[in-house]
C-alpha cells in the first residue's frame, strides 16, 4: 500500500471518534460542574428535597422530577395510541399515493421548531383548557398535549420501520387462515413487532423528558409540587432553561446538577431503547 493511500484511512479513523469524544466531553463537563453541589447537599436531599429556593440555599428538585415524569407519562398516554394507529395506517391501510403524501408531512411535523409548538400551545391549547376544563390553563395537561404532538413523528417512524420489517409470510399466513386485516394486525403483526414498538415508545419518552422550550411556554413553571394535572408545574429541563439566564455560583452549579439527573434519566431510557432495537434485529 502506498503512503498516500494510508493517510485517508488514518484521518478518517480520527474523525470517526469525534462523536464519542464529544459525548465524553459533555458528560465530563456537566458532571464536573454539577457534582460538587450534589456532594454538598447530599444525593438524597437533592433528588428528594421538596424545596427549591436558590437564594436561601435550598436545592431540592423532587417537584421537578415529578413534573418531568407526569408530563412525559401524559404525552405517552395521549400520543402513543395515535402514533401507533398512524404507523399501522401507513403500513397496512394507506394506498401508495396517500402514504407518499403523509410521510413528508410527518417529517415536517418533526422539523417544526419547538418554540413554535410551545407558542401554538400557549395561544390555542391553554385557553381551551382554562375555559372548558378549569384551572389556570398553564398546566401539566397542556404540556402533555403539546409533547404528545411533538413525539408523534419519532414513534410513528420507528414503529413503521418495525412493521415494515416483518417478513411477508406473517401477513400471508394470517390471511390464508381467513383472518381479517384487524385480526392479522392485532394477533400477528403487533406482537411480532413489539420490540421495535417498545423502542419507539421509549425514544418518544426520551424526547418528551428532554424537551424544553415548548414546555416552558405552556407549563406555568411553578416550583411547587403539582397536585392535579390541571396544576402548573416545572420540569427538570424548564428549571435549567428559565434560571440559566441569571444563575451564578452555587445556583448555577445546582442547574448543572439538574442536568446530571436529566442526563442519567435519558441515558437509561436510551440504553433500554437500544437494547430493544437490538433484540428486534436478533429475532430475525
Amino acid at each position: 500500500m502506498r503512503f498516500s493511500e494510508k493517510i485517508p484511512g488514518r484521518v478518517l479513523l480520527v474523525i470517526a471518534f469525534s462523536a464519542l469524544s464529544a459525548l465524553v466531553l459533555i458528560t465530563v463537563f456537566i458532571f464536573v460542574e454539577g457534582v460538587p453541589l450534589i456532594a454538598r447537599v447530599g444525593v438524597f436531599n437533592f433528588i428528594f428535597g421538596m424545596k427549591w429556593a436558590p437564594s436561601q440555599g435550598a436545592f431540592g428538585i423532587f417537584p421537578m422530577i415529578v413534573g418531568s415524569l407526569s408530563v412525559t407519562l401524559g404525552a405517552i398516554i395521549l400520543g402513543v395510541p395515535i402514533a401507533l394507529c398512524c404507523a399501522i395506517f401507513l403500513t397496512e391501510f394507506a394506498p401508495a399515493t396517500v402514504r407518499n403524501a403523509i410521510r413528508p408531512a410527518i417529517q415536517l411535523l418533526a422539523g417544526i421548531p419547538s418554540v413554535v409548538y410551545g407558542f401554538w400551545g400557549l395561544i390555542f391549547v391553554v385557553p381551551l383548557i382554562r375555559n372548558y376544563i378549569g384551572g389556570p390553563g398553564l398546566s401539566i395537561l397542556a404540556g402533555s398535549i403539546i409533547l404528545a404532538i411533538m413525539i408523534l413523528p419519532t414513534i410513528i417512524s420507528i414503529s413503521e420501520v418495525s412493521l415494515l420489517a416483518l417478513p411477508p409470510p406473517y401477513r400471508e399466513g394470517a390471511f390464508a387462515l381467513g383472518a381479517t386485516q384487524w385480526q392479522t394486525i392485532h394477533g400477528v403483526l403487533l406482537p411480532a413487532a413489539r420490540s421495535g414498538i417498545l423502542a419507539a415508545v421509549i425514544l418518544g419518552m426520551g424526547r418528551a423528558i428532554g424537551e424544553t422550550m415548548a414546555v416552558i411556554m405552556v407549563l406555568g413553571n411553578a416550583v411547587a409540587m403539582p397536585s392535579s394535572i390541571l396544576d402548573p408545574a416545572r420540569t427538570l429541563t424548564t428549571n435549567i432553561g428559565i434560571e440559566m439566564a441569571y444563575a451564578a455560583g452555587e445556583h448555577r452549579q445546582a442547574l448543572f446538577a439538574t442536568g446530571i439527573v436529566l442526563l442519567v434519566m435519558i441515558m437509561i431510557l436510551n440504553s433500554v431503547a437500544q437494547y430493544a432495537l437490538r433484540r428486534r434485529q436478533d429475532e430475525r
Binding site: A16, F17, A19, L20, S21, A22, L23, L25, I26, F29, I30, E33, L203, G206, I209, G210, E211, T212, T237, I240, G241, M244, L255, F256, G259, L262, L263, I266, M267, L269, N270, A273, Q274
Partner: peptide, 25 residues
C-alpha cells in the same frame, strides 16, 4: 460498536444539555 454507541447516545441528549455543555465548555 464504540463509535456507533457514541453517535447513538449523542442523538438522545436533550438540547438544553447541549446548551449547558456549550456554555461551560
Amino acid at each position: 460498536r464504540i463509535i456507533r454507541f457514541g453517535a447513538e447516545s449523542l442523538a438522545g441528549i436533550p438540547s438544553i444539555v447541549y446548551g449547558l455543555f456549550g456554555f461551560i465548555f
